[in-house]
Design a protein around this nucleic acid. Structure first.
Lengths: 268, 268
DNA sequence: TGCTAAATCTCGAAC
DNA sequence: GTTCGAGGTTTAGCA
């Protein structure tokens, strides 16, 4: 951690003010916004959103977060999703509208929209000077599946040979284009989870277009599993399916990477 | 607010513990979980996620929220999206793993997955007994647009007459099916924001299938605006476009509701 | 319970 | 800057 790595005395990363007055809270928030520090507020508020859509939310006790990059999050005591929000890059206005009331407005310019939070009461205002330089590493994404297939085409079927990936077509991008052991063009559409009817339609469009030039073209949907409707659609459109687990692909890739590193190490 | 409405002395809704020891933090969190209160933690942690996918995130200062309904949210100092999370209904385990280390694990049963947070240091632990009974009201959704069109079909064009909505087809559900002033079947696909090529393709599929039975079938895409690719696709597929604002639809609906209420009132 | 489609989707990469 | 597609998508509605 940068904060502790150099043995200098750490600056206090959390300044908490419990039951602050509206004035104090306004001052803390205003200064934190100026310095681009994160802010955490717990209190009783009403919320108005106007923009692409609009929403109203009556009084309730909520958690409000403003991030360093000026995103806004309002969380209720239940549920994973924020009840109101704005993505990063907002302009904030903080106003004391009466002795005990504080109003925070986040304005996004494009598209023009705003979220207004009117606090009746503030229980807690924290200014957070958080340091967080780590990068998140995510495994078993769709692109891991694509890489795995390109690296070991037999994951699809024996004799499959990729030609290109991300080939552009009039209706979008084909995940993988290749030929099967009989020389037929084969279009691969990858979905990491349960493939829906929509995914089948996407594959069908590519195959349809490609067949105009190359009649002997097959389509194979690759996914962890198939939704009912997708199964029916595949059958009626005469397209193939290959079950493939994103986790298995990711594990295989990491194994490959390890071996490659080893080979390089062995080489020197 | 329920908390203040009855003039009883309010229970303190926020218990904040600044720089708690791992033991104290563990105790606070454990009790809050038992009582289904919300929890807010700020500290230095590493995170491991394993489940449908998997992720690792090295040490950093973050905000952790556990909600009353046992959802988990981990926010970084930047960005709107949580970096790791679990939806409501998790089982939590809180363990002190060494003098200064605290480990919180959220386990979701279906699908089986887990998020493990290892705290090196905790700056703040808050137990939040939040009351929030308000319902959020959201306007200008896609279904508002559909309702508005069904209520006033001339929003599409003069003489348009809806037959059904949400009609099932082999390839999906048609938003609105109707006839135009010349008796042609007309399929309406609605998007609330900017319509993409994907939306045009969806409409094209419906029209294509429907034309097999009824050659005189038109397709109209209804949206706030059109992406470039969507525009091209519409032109080449000979489909129509009608610009319609979700906000306008929502306003119209509320006007209609008001008048209906008035009519009923006038009647009695 | 499973499936389908929307979302104030957001986010990132490619053009 | 716009467009396009993925996402650990989540969530709500309906069969």
């Amino acid at each position: 951690m940068a904060r502790f790595g150099n043995n200098l005395k750490a600056k206090e990363p959390v300044k908490a003010s419990i039951h602050p007055s509206a004035s104090d809270s306004r001052k803390l928030i205003h200064e934190a916004l100026e310095r681009s520090e994160a802010i955490l507020i717990v209190g009783v508020c009403e919320i108005l959103y106007k923009g692409r859509a609009s929403s109203t939310l009556g009084s309730g006790e909520r958690i409000v977060i403003i991030t360093k990059d000026k995103a806004l999050l309002i969380h209720r005591s239940c549920g994973y999703r924020a009840v109101n929000w704005q993505p990063a890059g907002c302009n904030f206005r903080v106003e004391k509208t009466s002795e005990d009331r504080l109003e925070i407005t986040a304005v996004r310019m494009k598209p023009l929209e705003s979220v207004k939070i009117s606090f009746d009461r503030i229980y807690l205002t924290c200014v957070l000077d958080l340091i967080d330089e780590s990068k998140i590493c995510l495994y078993a994404s769709e692109s891991d599946m694509q890489k795995a297939i390109l690296h070991r085409p037999s994951l699809i079927e024996d004799g499959f040979a990729p030609i290109t990936s991300e080939k552009e077509m009039p209706t979008g991008f084909v995940d993988i284009l290749g030929r099967d052991k009989d020389g037929n063009y084969t279009i691969i559409e990858i979905k990491r989870g349960r493939a829906t009817r929509e995914a089948v339609m996407q594959l069908a469009r590519y195959v349809e277009v490609f067949r105009k030039e190359n009649p002997n073209t097959r389509g194979i949907l690759v996914a962890e599993s198939l939704a009912r409707g997708a199964e029916r659609a595949l059958a009626s459109l005469n397209l193939g399916f290959k079950r493939l687990s994103p986790k298995k692909c990711s594990e295989m890739l990491r194994e490959v990477e390890k071996n490659e590193a080893k080979e390089i190490k062995d080489y020197f």
